[in-house]
């Protein structure tokens, strides 16, 4: 564990907590893309399948449980919570996210570290996470006002992946040259997608 990765995990955790706070405190999810939240839940379920089989560390297991439960809680709120679900603007959140799931799955079948169920699920989750933010970015660009909490949520999500890129560079030079090209390329794509959001976010 290096500082970049820890900072990345904390920033990621913080982004999820900011979103939960916004939804819980304001009882509203206006401006939040439910499709992006559903994609993130699929990302965590596909990636943390080894939660019960591979024990890596207490930190690793606790964080996996936190990410899975928080993303499920957000999706549940946006679908089932009587007050919150009314504030979801369905007509605005129109991105066909099924296409993203299918594309990530096909990519995972072709590009993976080993052609096993676990590795294909892992690669699928990495590719899907890289594009999961798209419905949210489309919603932000459509919406007139980017409310602060949603803007901060996307900002922290972008920062988390940027920290991970520093983490991969650090590990490359300290731990030897293991092939992490799946993580690297997807991480670069993911951070790149945020670039235009950061541009508008800071100019706003």
């Amino acid at each position: 564990m290096n500082a970049f990765r820890f900072l990345g995990d904390m920033t990621h955790l913080f982004s999820v907590l900011v979103l939960l706070l916004k939804i819980y405190a304001t009882k509203s999810c206006s401006g939040v893309s439910r499709k992006t939240q559903e994609l993130y839940m699929v990302v965590f379920l596909a990636r943390y399948m080894d939660l019960f089989t591979d024990y890596i560390s207490l930190y690793n297991s606790v964080m996996k449980v936190v990410f899975i439960t928080s993303s499920a809680a957000i999706v549940w709120c946006m679908r089932r919570h009587p007050q919150v679900r009314r504030t979801y603007d369905k007509e605005q959140d129109t991105f066909r996210h099924v296409v993203l799931v299918a594309a990530a799955f096909v990519l995972a079948l072709i590009f993976n570290e080993r052609f096993t169920f676990r590795e294909i699920c892992w690669a699928f989750s990495i590719y899907l996470e890289a594009v999961a933010i798209l419905p949210q970015l489309v919603l932000l660009q459509r919406g007139r006002n980017v409310d602060n909490l949603t803007g901060q949520y996307v900002f922290f999500l972008g920062a988390y992946r940027a920290f991970y890129i520093l983490n991969w560079i650090y590990r490359y030079f300290t731990e030897g040259h293991h092939s992490r090209w799946i993580s690297w390329l997807s991480g670069l794509v993911q951070t790149g997608l945020y670039a235009d959001f950061f541009y508008y976010y800071f100019l706003r």
């Binding site: 990765r5 995990d9 990621h12 990636r47 080894d50 591979d54 890596i56 690793n60 964080m63 996996k64 990410f67 570290e113 080993r114 590795e119 892992w122 991970y164 983490n167 731990e175 293991h178 993580s183």
Partner: peptide
């Protein structure tokens, strides 16, 4: 850990 190809990152 790398040998066992387990992914130790979140």
């Amino acid at each position: 850990r790398e040998g066992s190809h387990s992914h130790d990152e979140l």
